[in-house]
Simulated scan of single mutants.
Amino acid sequence: MADSSTAFPIPEPDRAFHFKYSTVAGYFQQSDDSTDSDTFDFTKENFGLVDRKYETDDDDKDKDKTQWQRFETYVRHLNAHSAEDVQYKVLFLGRHGQGWHNVAEAKYGMKAWDSYYSMLDGADGMTWSDAKLTPTGQQQAKDVHALWQRLLPSGIPAPETYYVSPLTRTLETADLSFAGLDLPADKPYKPIVKELLREALGIHTCDRRSPASTILTAFPHVTLEAGFSDADTLWRPDYREPRSARKYRLQQLLDDVFGSDSDPGVFLALTSHSGAIASVLEAVGHRAFGLRTGGWCRCWRWRRRRLGGE
Results as ranks from 00 to 15, higher is better:
residue 172 E to I: 00
residue 200 A to Q: 15
residue 189 Y to G: 06
residue 207 D to M: 02
residue 205 T to W: 14
residue 199 E to I: 00
residue 205 T to H: 13
residue 189 Y to W: 11
residue 189 Y to R: 05
residue 204 H to E: 10
residue 199 E to G: 03
residue 188 P to S: 03
residue 199 E to P: 02
residue 202 G to M: 05
residue 198 R to G: 11
residue 202 G to L: 02
residue 202 G to I: 04
residue 186 D to K: 08
residue 208 R to V: 12
residue 190 K to Q: 15
residue 190 K to V: 14
residue 183 L to F: 07
residue 191 P to Q: 04
residue 202 G to W: 05
residue 181 L to P: 06
residue 209 R to N: 03
residue 171 L to R: 00
residue 205 T to N: 14
residue 194 K to Q: 08
residue 199 E to A: 01
residue 208 R to F: 12
residue 208 R to W: 15
residue 205 T to F: 13
residue 178 F to E: 03
residue 194 K to V: 00
residue 186 D to T: 09
residue 177 S to T: 12
residue 209 R to F: 08
residue 178 F to T: 03
residue 174 A to K: 06
residue 197 L to F: 11
residue 187 K to P: 14
residue 173 T to N: 05
residue 191 P to R: 05
residue 188 P to T: 05
residue 181 L to S: 02
residue 171 L to K: 01
residue 174 A to C: 08
residue 197 L to G: 10
residue 174 A to E: 10
residue 172 E to Q: 14
residue 192 I to G: 11
residue 196 L to I: 05
residue 197 L to W: 07
residue 209 R to I: 04
residue 180 G to A: 02
residue 188 P to Q: 05
residue 200 A to H: 14
residue 199 E to Q: 00
residue 186 D to S: 12
residue 173 T to S: 12
residue 185 A to M: 10
residue 204 H to S: 09
residue 171 L to D: 01
residue 176 L to R: 07
residue 198 R to N: 15
residue 201 L to R: 15
residue 186 D to V: 03
residue 177 S to A: 15
residue 189 Y to H: 09
residue 178 F to Q: 03
residue 196 L to R: 09
residue 176 L to I: 04
residue 203 I to D: 10
residue 180 G to N: 05
residue 187 K to R: 10
residue 208 R to D: 10
residue 187 K to Y: 10
residue 172 E to C: 03
residue 193 V to N: 08
residue 204 H to L: 09
residue 191 P to H: 04
residue 182 D to L: 07
residue 200 A to V: 14
residue 189 Y to I: 07
residue 192 I to D: 10
residue 191 P to K: 04
residue 209 R to Q: 01
residue 196 L to Y: 02
residue 188 P to E: 05
residue 177 S to C: 13
residue 173 T to R: 06
residue 209 R to E: 03
residue 188 P to K: 03
residue 208 R to Y: 11
residue 174 A to R: 05
residue 204 H to M: 09
residue 200 A to L: 15
residue 179 A to Y: 11
residue 184 P to A: 01
residue 201 L to E: 12
residue 207 D to T: 01
residue 187 K to L: 10
